[in-house]
Design a binder for these strands. Structure first.
Lengths: 316, 316
DNA sequence: TCCTGTTGTCGGCCTTTCCGACAATTTGG
DNA sequence: CCAAATTGTCGGAAAGGCCGACAACAGGA
């Protein structure tokens, strides 16, 4: 996990690229959610949430590829869960890796206020506008330098602009924007025997620019303005150990717990970074969802709260 | 000449590219001056300058590849020169062509004020900080798709980061920013028999992206932060006739003269665009420089003011 | 099970790009 | 004016990348 705006985007080993000092434009939420995957939803701003310091700490440990260390001191006054008001959410993407993450500002509220505690109804179902999209896991052929990208037939016909079939073969130029608003250009052609949709020219630059490997996924979205958006989801590979470059895993976990304890004692706002793809455990949950789970399953102290498992593949 | 921020940069036929709505960051002055060439200097903001409406009109005519038309009406109250206060200067570069130009805000001052007229001393020699750079005119081999870019030996050793000569062959990745802050990446290798410095991978993308031809020049600057900057100077080719796309040559010249006449009559500020490479005639001159020329040569009414000719090749 | 539609991989071939050879040119005595 | 250093151009070779062939696979009858 990195602080936002920490680096300069350099896309492509050989191509041109913009140099963004941080993120000058706001991230497109549709594309962010697409890259985050179908399991991820963020609580609405202004709602009450439950924050689990332990789960947060675990996510960092997972990112750092390290188990929770026994040397972490105890914070006797830190509860295992904290009811908080969600003040603010901003979406981000690492300019180097396209990894998506969110920054949330939380403020602990008084748990004795039973009214607020129980008043929160079912979250207004954060309506993730379901625009048209498709997601394909890349094959060896897709990522090899030998050829282009084989587009699933139904996906191409649903998402891409229609081809002019009077041409032989039918072909067009596609442009798509990624999370950083970079434009990628591809030749889209319908050819071969049997006929199929392919992306040829421009594809290899995208693969090398994003450093994609077989097993990673690409995501095309057609937004309400008929613009194409383009994102990636990397396969779960070994997380890179970035502790040496910034802070040790131990220090980060101590920092998380200490920050939570301080905020809890003072009812003061604090900030967390949530990396949806780093770990399946969520550590910020809508209060309504939590209450619902409580009444149906009886969560006991110290139990870990996990999302139900759903398959990650999506996009028909 | 175009208005600033008129287009979206899309560099390279196939690569990634930023989408800049106008210029979000200010242009790097060192690089701007490098691209403008050694003859160009801009008067300092706040100084007094002499503005030549006729010279301005001629520059536009040269840009439009058209002689001054006889149908231009006379402006009897428009003097052949106007003493002005230079309020503001902003540097620009066309996002499509990298053509550099400057926007200046001028305000006519009372010529009767002899004091101001004579008080202006020698301009404080706009100290164009002489950082390290080199400029090479591209050969047929440099621009053909057959190979890469042959880097003059001394230039490479002066400007580029030193190679690790324990490698065989010594090579590294170079990154350089252009006027729009796009990053270009090149493989820099020292090889061949006899040994020479070459830019290989990435070079052809730059050539096609900037649409460079043999005879055009490239410019590498190493700034004070050891960052590489990269610019181009196009050979003087036939100017493109852009009159049809915006305004006729006649209309533009009438507009220039009318605007100058109006500003002169009202002592009100007006704006001019100065394109240093479009024409050798300057139409905004520091007053001090003008006075100096006056006393040595006796300029007569209607005479054209031209810079002394210097060779354009530079960079040792 | 079989049929049909879809798509992953491959050989063939052309283009692009990397390499050192060599000669043309420049520089410095 | 000659010798050494530099660098422009080229043939050969390797890699990139477009093409349809074909077979593997998936889904429905």
């Amino acid at each position: 996990m990195k602080a936002p705006g920490s680096t300069t985007a350099v896309a492509g080993a050989t191509g041109t690229s913009p140099s963004e000092g941080g993120e000058r434009k706001s991230i497109n939420p549709e594309l962010w959610y697409g890259c985050a995957g179908p399991l991820v939803s963020l609580p609405p701003v202004g709602s009450l949430v439950v924050y689990f310091p332990q789960g947060h700490s675990e996510q960092v440990a997972a990112t750092m590829q390290k188990d929770v260390d026994v040397q972490i001191p105890n914070y006797p006054n830190l509860p295992w869960k904290m009811i908080c008001l969600l003040h603010n959410v901003t979406l981000h993407a690492d300019p180097e890796t396209d990894e998506v993450y969110a920054q949330m500002t939380l403020q602990p509220v008084n748990t004795n206020d039973k009214e607020a505690f129980l008043a929160s109804d079912l979250s207004p179902k954060t309506n993730r506008l379901q625009t048209d999209f498709f997601c394909k896991t890349l094959t060896a052929s897709d990522t090899s330098t030998h050829g282009g990208f084989s587009v699933p037939r139904r996906a191409a016909e649903k998402i891409f602009p229609p081809l002019d079939f009077s041409m032989q073969p039918p072909a067009q130029e596609l442009q798509a924007r990624d999370l950083h608003d970079n434009v990628w250009t591809f030749r889209h052609i319908y050819r071969g025997q049997p006929k199929r949709h392919l992306l040829t020219t421009g594809w290899s630059l995208f693969v090398s620019g994003k450093r994609l490997l077989a097993g990673d996924s690409v995501l095309f979205i057609r937004d309400e303005k008929q613009q194409l958006l383009l994102g990636i989801r990397r396969a779960n590979r070994q997380p890179t150990n970035i502790s040496s470059s910034v802070l040790s895993s131990d220090s980060m976990q101590i920092g998380i717990l200490a920050a939570a304890a301080h905020a809890y004692a003072n009812h003061s706002p604090f900030t967390v970074f949530y990396n949806p793809r780093a770990s399946p455990s969520e550590f910020v949950i809508p209060l309504a969802k939590y209450n619902k789970a409580i009444y149906s399953h009886q969560i006991t102290l110290g139990m870990r709260f996990r999302m139900m498992f759903e398959t990650e593949e999506s996009g028909t």
